[in-house]
């Protein structure tokens, strides 16, 4: 494909075109000065027609260039190989998406199941607290029983602290599964790009072989999750920035 060069005017040809244009403009100025409106209109039409001709010449050149590209693709089996590998790449990414979704749901299931144990731990803590209270009452003047009640209180406090910690950690664990939504959205975008390239390539290859297939137009509306290193200029820097922006409209 390297031998295909876009068409440009050579310096001499450009100079000649400029001289011709200058001559035509002078004619037009003269016609205007002499009050010959009909001649001026005719010259103007000529000029516009020439511009349109130039446009169509360029289109024709582009078409020729494209034909040359297609010709260069002929016999290059890598294009066909690429076209057949792209669906595989898309399918693999779909599979990754399903795997992460399953993993995230499995984690959330385990968190849900653990919540039941947390409830049990909580009610055990309450039982220990009430038992300790009764023991303290019953201990009276017995130092041994009072010591038992004090030991029990230590365990009760440690249990309560760990119970609170576990609740917090499980909540964070569930929240951390948010990655699946964000990575999933990014994977879907990449998959869409792959599918789009695949469609375009198939179209190109089928045109080469003479069959026509119209690819659907890709939706390029939203930017999706911000990717470090690929941030777009218009993105907010975080929730505070988003809040400040929203506040301007509230």
């Amino acid at each position: 494909m390297d031998d295909v060069k876009p068409s440009v005017l050579k310096p001499e040809a450009e100079q000649a075109a400029r001289a011709e244009l200058l001559g035509r403009l002078k004619d037009m100025t003269l016609a205007l000065e002499q009050g010959d409106d009909a001649l001026f209109a005719e010259r103007l039409q000529d000029l516009l027609r020439r511009r349109e001709d130039g446009f169509f010449t360029r289109i024709a050149q582009l078409t020729q260039d494209l034909r040359a590209v297609f010709a260069a693709m002929e016999g290059d089996s890598r294009w066909n190989a690429l076209a057949s590998e792209l669906p595989d790449a898309g399918a693999r990414l779909d599979h990754v998406l399903r795997l992460t979704e399953q993993a995230a749901h499995r984690t959330l299931d385990l968190v849900d199941e653990s919540q039941l144990h947390l409830v049990t731990l909580g009610s055990c803590g309450q039982t220990i607290a009430s038992t300790r209270a009764r023991l303290t009452m019953a201990a009276g003047a017995s130092p041994a029983l009072a010591q038992l009640a004090a030991d029990l209180q230590g365990a009760e406090q440690a249990l309560s602290h760990s119970h609170g910690q576990l609740r917090g950690k499980f909540s964070e664990l569930a929240m951390a599964q948010e990655y699946q939504d964000l990575s999933g959205q990014l994977l879907k975008r990449v998959t869409n790009v792959i599918r789009e390239v695949e469609r375009e390539l198939m179209k190109l290859l089928s045109q080469r072989s003479g069959t026509q297939e119209r690819p659907p137009v890709a939706d390029k509306g939203l930017e999706g999750p911000v990717v470090p290193g690929l941030e777009k200029a218009g993105a907010v820097s975080g929730q505070d920035d988003a809040d400040a922006l929203l506040a301007m409209f509230m």
Binding site: E178, D181, V226, A235, V236
Partner: peptide
């Protein structure tokens, strides 16, 4: 996850009550 300023403005103009950018807590 849409964090573009123009999108937040579009949502605000459409009458959104609050806007949280993912990832969030």
């Amino acid at each position: 996850a849409e964090a573009q300023r123009e999108q937040i403005i579009e949502a605000a103009k459409a009458g959104v009550s609050g806007y949280i950018v993912k990832p969030f807590t």
